[in-house]
Each structure stands twice: as structure tokens, then as C-alpha cells.
Design a binder for these strands. Structure first.
Length: 432
DNA sequence: TCTGGGGTCCTAGGACCC
DNA sequence: TCTGGGGTCCTAGGACCC
């Protein structure tokens, strides 16, 4: 014992993971009930790779992250519906799912756009399996999104429970994994690489040492785990023993860094286009910076050519800002300076990225340090946020960014749907 | 022709200070 | 010319996640 930082707390409490099934696909199906039962995929930016798959697609053997060009004709042959990603829609639907979940729990952590950990309330602890099914039914009724709910003493175990609920129709989409025999049985069936927190490198390493299942990971010696996988790996094993090491973190913490990047639809050679892209990404990051009420203390710009063709060139420059800021004008100026310090002619650039770092709270103290000019820039940026927010698109922007750009990511198969488009909503008759 | 975008945490090693 | 221990902070890189 004596592992500092690991919270040794016997599992009197139960928590649950609620995981939306095939989330992006399910969002697209909200507007296209005719796609129920049909193969559907959603593609990444630039229609590059498959990032969400319906069950029918999974059954056809199409993998997550598969480049679209490689499966395109295969998908056509099978009559699959293909969508470009529409993150604005997915975020709106996500907010509704989370609101629906909050009614079931005193404490909840939004873990990702399609997942949340919930503390199970006292009444749910008596029959956690039934409680899980209730949650699933309510979310489906209220939002139209199918979810899987797994209940267990720890997050790592709840992940396994939710996976079981998703994969086995007989569970009805809800499953409770409680210490005892079923616990051992299930852990024995789960490949070690399917455990939350065990990725490619670690599972290869573990398998080479005969640790091929979640059960074997649970029973591996602490000193070896800590030596080879570090504290995170050790905690994962403890969680499989039913000891809670990763608590539910209810309070939403502000992000510590904010990045914005895109691959270009076509290679970019000239400095001007690259500068446009960097400016656009800076505006995107700036808006998110202000929305979480932070100031950036540093900013970095990276540019690179394709990883897949020709000889690779990449460069990165980081600048420390004189004063932490949330002014687009200051950020854009810094980004332009960083870009010109790394730009080299003669390369086919495929991607640019900007990252805001050293974030601090835009609260009390720093504001007094601001000079007048900085104040104006920040105020202007916030006014733009307000206008653009109300319009639902970018109305106010630098002239250089007006119009369609060749490098803008392709979205040939965008559904164009949003929850605010009432006229576009399909009319369906549903039985409750 | 065509291969995503956005995060977090941990650790090792170097710089620097006493 | 050779030579110590210990602490802190920072950064880069690696691992993981969705």
C-alpha cells in the first residue's frame, strides 16, 4: 500500500456511465427516421475518415477511423447513408441528453459530448439494473437518442457495464455490474485492450506478459503495474477490484489549453492563404477562450505538410503574450507574427493549428492591469461573439476572411440540420 | 484525387537555486 | 580541478481518452 494520490475508498457507492449509442449517427437519424435499420456513417472534417458508425455499418466490418476513399464504393454498394459531420447539431443534442440525465442524479460529470458519469441516487441503489433501464427509457423518450447505461462501483467498471449493455440486446440497454461472481465472469471475458485507460502500447506490453484479460489485469501485482504503467495503470487495476480511484468530478473545470486546427481541402503553398487560415483558427479559439472566461498567456502556431505524401515539413512557434488577453486583435497579431517566423516557401501545406496556452481566469486581478487599447480589443471581441452568437454564424469578421476559400474543409454530405430549424423538422406520428 | 480534431495527465530530464 | 544533495519549476514527449 502507500500509493499517494490513490483514494482508497471501499465501494459502498454505485455510479453509472451513460453512453450514447453511435452518437453522431443517432443525431443524424433524428431528422431522418427512414434511416432506422439502414447503414449510416458520419465522416470527419474534410470527409476524411469514418468517425461514427451505425450497428449495420459495424456488422459490415467497416472500422472506426477508416479513410473514406477506401470504403466509399463499398458503402455505396450497401446503400449506406453518408454524412459530413455537423458538430453544431451534435453539441445541441448533447446538451439535451445531459439535461435529461440531470433529473436522475444529485451529481454528474459530463465526460464527453456523448458520455456522462452519474452518481446513483439512494433509491436507485436498491435495484441499480432497473434504475439504469429507467434512465435509458427517459432519455430515449425525451431526446430520441438511444443510450446504454452501466452501473458499477467504479468508473472503470461502469465503462465495462455500459459496454455490456450496448452489446447484449437481452440487457435492454441497462446493466449493473456488482462485485461477486458475475463480476469475475465478465472481467474474464473482456480483452485487456478494452479496459478504459489501456491503449495500444500498454495492451501490447501486458499481453506479452500474459495479462490478456481485464481479470488478469485486476490480479496483477501492484509493484509491477506501477513500475511499468505508472500510477494511472495501477489505479485502473484497483478500479477493477472495486476500489474507487477516479471520483466523479461534477464541477466543470475550465480547459487548460484551447486549440483549433484543420486540414485543408487542397494543399496551400502561398503565405496569404496560410495567414487567412491561421487568422480564422485564432478567431475560433478566441471565441472559445472567452466563452469559458479565460485569458491566454501564450499562443503557438504550427504548420505542416502531409504525413502521407512527399517529404514531411513541419514547424511550430510559440509566443508569450505581454499580458494575458482575450482580445482577438491581440491574438491575431501574435499569431501572424508567429506564422511569419516559421513560414518557408515551396511546401504544400496540408494543415495549420493554433493553440492558446497558459490560460488564466479573466476574473478580478488582471483586468486592472489592462491598458485602454487592450480593453477596446476585448470589448470588440465580445461584441462580435454576441452578434455572431445571435446570428448562429459568423457575421462579423475580418475582411480577409470574407467569401469561400479554396482551403476550407470539404463537407459535401452535410445534412445542414440544426435543432433551431423548425421548418425542417420531419413530421412523424409516434406511439409513446 | 482521397488519411480528423480536441483534449488530459504523467514522467523524465534539464535549468536553476540554496 | 573536481565536485554534493535536495528542492522546485518548466518543458517535451509519450501515453491515454472521445
Amino acid at each position: 500500500m502507500g500509493h499517494p494520490g490513490a483514494v482508497l475508498k471501499p465501494c459502498a457507492d454505485l455510479l453509472a456511465l451513460c453512453d450514447c449509442n453511435n452518437f453522431f449517427v443517432s443525431c443524424e437519424r433524428l431528422f431522418r427516421p427512414d434511416l432506422e435499420g439502414r447503414p449510416v456513417v458520419v465522416l470527419s472534417s474534410n470527409d476524411g475518415v469514418v468517425i461514427s458508425r451505425s450497428n449495420e455499418i459495424k456488422a459490415l466490418g467497416v472500422k472506426m477511423g477508416e479513410p473514406f476513399f477506401r470504403v466509399r464504393s463499398f458503402l455505396e454498394r450497401h446503400g449506406a447513408a453518408v454524412f459530413s459531420s455537423n458538430f453544431r447539431l451534435y453539441e445541441e443534442v448533447s446538451a439535451r441528453v445531459m439535461a435529461s440525465l440531470r433529473r436522475f442524479t444529485p451529481s454528474m460529470e459530463v465526460y464527453s459530448v456523448d458520455e456522462a458519469f452519474l452518481e446513483i441516487p439512494p433509491e436507485g441503489k436498491k435495484k441499480p439494473g432497473e434504475w439504469a433501464l429507467d434512465v435509458r427509457a427517459a432519455v430515449l423518450r425525451q431526446t430520441g437518442i438511444p443510450v446504454s447505461v452501466g452501473a458499477a462501483p467504479t468508473k472503470t467498471a461502469a465503462k465495462l457495464a455500459a459496454e455490456r449493455a450496448k452489446k447484449r440486446p437481452e440487457t435492454g440497454g441497462g446493466f449493473a455490474l456488482l462485485p461477486g461472481d458475475p463480476w469475475e465472469d465478465l472481467l474474464g471475458e473482456v480483452p485487456v485492450e478494452d479496459v478504459w485507460g489501456i491503449g495500444r502500447r500498454w495492451s501490447d506490453f501486458l499481453r506479452r506478459r500474459g495479462i490478456s484479460t481485464a481479470l488478469r489485469l485486476r490480479d496483477a501485482p501492484d509493484d509491477r503495474l506501477e513500475k511499468y504503467l505508472g500510477i494511472r495503470g495501477l489505479r485502473t487495476a484497483w478500479e477493477l477490484r472495486g476500489i474507487r480511484c477516479f471520483p466523479i468530478e461534477e464541477r466543470e473545470k475550465p480547459q487548460k489549453s484551447i486549440q483549433s486546427s484543420r486540414s485543408f481541402a487542397v494543399p496551400v503553398r502561398d503565405r496569404e492563404s496560410l495567414a487567412e487560415a491561421v487568422t480564422e483558427f485564432t478567431l475560433t479559439a478566441g471565441r472559445r477562450l472567452r466563452s469559458q472566461n479565460s485569458l491566454a498567456g501564450s499562443l503557438s502556431v504550427s504548420i505542416s505538410t502531409s504525413r502521407f505524401r512527399g517529404s514531411f515539413f513541419g514547424a511550430r512557434a510559440e509566443v508569450t503574450l505581454e499580458t494575458p488577453t482575450d482580445s482577438d486583435i491581440t491574438l491575431m497579431r501574435a499569431a501572424a507574427g508567429a506564422l511569419s517566423s516559421i513560414y518557408r516557401e515551396g511546401h504544400d501545406y496540408e494543415k495549420a493549428e493554433i493553440c492558446l496556452g497558459s490560460l488564466s481566469s479573466a476574473g478580478t486581478v488582471q483586468l486592472r492591469l489592462f491598458g485602454k487599447r487592450e480593453d477596446r480589443g476585448a470589448a470588440l471581441s465580445r461584441a462580435a461573439d454576441r452578434l455572431n452568437g445571435e446570428a448562429g454564424r459568423r457575421l462579423l469578421l475580418p475582411a480577409a476572411l470574407l467569401g469561400e476559400k479554396e482551403w476550407h474543409p470539404r463537407k459535401d454530405r452535410h445534412s445542414g440540420m440544426g435543432l433551431e430549424d423548425l421548418e425542417k423538422l420531419p413530421v412523424i406520428s409516434a406511439e409513446e
